[in-house]
Computed example of a mutant assay.
Amino acid sequence: MKGASLIAPLGVRIPDDLKEKIQAQAKANGRSMNAEIVFILEEAMSDNDRSDDDLREQLIDAYEQKIKSMEDYIKMQKQAFELATEQISLLKTHIKSTTGFDVQAYFDKTIDYDGIRKAVETKNKGKT
């Protein structure tokens, strides 16, 4: 191994059967036991790095899918709201044309929209 004098020795106790497996693998790969152990450790560490990267990619993909799903849901809710608003408008028009009763005028007199808006704004200011 090149530059072996610059590498600090590390004493490690390993079971005999594991040592025999490493010896056999080192011999099959034409390496010393030390070189084989270094090779195995480097491979394990690079696999961990790849696993971390793979996990990050999977998480990113999952979050992107979740965001897309939520955007689709929001779009659907907006469409449902617009449809409901249109239906309410049509109902008001129908009621006024069939009975002469102006539902919107009644609501405008009965409901304090400005008061509701101010209360909501005050409540929202308290949250920020």
Score class of each variant (00 low, 15 high):
Glu43Asn: 14
Leu91Ile: 05
Glu82Trp: 06
Glu71Asp: 15
Met33Cys: 03
Ser69Gln: 15
Pro15Trp: 00
Ile74Asp: 06
Asn29Trp: 02
Ala8His: 02
Arg31Cys: 02
Pro15Gly: 09
Ile111Val: 12
Ala24Pro: 03
Ala8Thr: 01
Ile111Phe: 05
Asp102Trp: 12
Asp114Met: 02
Ser46Ala: 09
Gln77Glu: 15
Lys27Ala: 09
Leu18Asp: 07
Ile67Ala: 09
Glu71Cys: 11
Thr128Leu: 11
Asn124Ala: 14
Gln104Cys: 04
Lys75Ser: 12
Thr93Gly: 02
Asp102Pro: 12
Ser69Asn: 11
Lys21His: 09
Tyr113His: 05
Ile22Asp: 09
Gln25Ser: 13
Ala105Cys: 03
Asp53Phe: 06
Thr98Cys: 01
His94Asn: 02
Ala62Tyr: 08
Ala44Ser: 14
Leu59Lys: 09
Glu42Thr: 11
Thr93Lys: 05
Pro15Val: 01
Ala26Tyr: 06
Gly100Val: 07
Arg50Ser: 15
Met70Arg: 12
Arg56Leu: 13
Leu90Ile: 07
Val12Lys: 01
Phe39Ile: 02
Tyr63His: 11
Gln23Thr: 13
Gln25Asn: 13
Gly11Glu: 03
Arg56Phe: 11
Asp47Thr: 14
Ala62Cys: 08
Glu36Asn: 00
Leu41Met: 11
Ser51Trp: 13
Tyr113Asp: 02
Met33Asp: 10
Gly3Val: 09
Ile95Asp: 03
Lys19Glu: 14
Ala105Ser: 12
Asp52Asn: 11
Thr110Gly: 00
Met1Leu: 04
Glu64Val: 10
His94Gly: 00
Leu10Ser: 03
Gln79Cys: 02
Ser97Tyr: 06
Asp54His: 05
Asn124Leu: 15
Glu86Leu: 13
Glu43Gly: 11
Asp72Tyr: 07
Thr110Val: 05
Phe107Gly: 01
Ile95Thr: 08
Glu71Pro: 03
Val120Gln: 04
Gln79Asp: 12
Phe107Asp: 02
Ala44Pro: 11
Thr85Asp: 13
Asp17Ser: 07
Ile37Lys: 02
Gly100Tyr: 04
Leu10Arg: 11
Thr122Pro: 00
Ile7Asp: 10
Gln79Tyr: 06
Ser97Gln: 15
Leu90Glu: 08
Ile37Thr: 14
Ala4Ile: 08
Tyr73Pro: 00
Asp61Lys: 10
Glu57Arg: 15
Asp17Phe: 02
Phe107Asn: 07
Arg50Leu: 14
His94Ile: 00
Ile37Pro: 09
Arg117Pro: 00
Glu43Met: 10
Gln65Ile: 14
Met1Arg: 05
Ile40Gly: 01
Gln77Trp: 10
Ile88Val: 15
Val120His: 03
Gln25Phe: 05
Asp47Ala: 12
Arg117Val: 08
Ser89Ala: 10
Leu18Ser: 10
Gly126Asp: 09
Thr110Asp: 00
Ala28Phe: 01
Arg31Val: 06
Leu18His: 10
Gln104Thr: 12
Ser5Tyr: 05
Asn48Pro: 00
Tyr113Val: 08
Tyr113Pro: 00
Asn48Val: 12
Tyr63Leu: 10
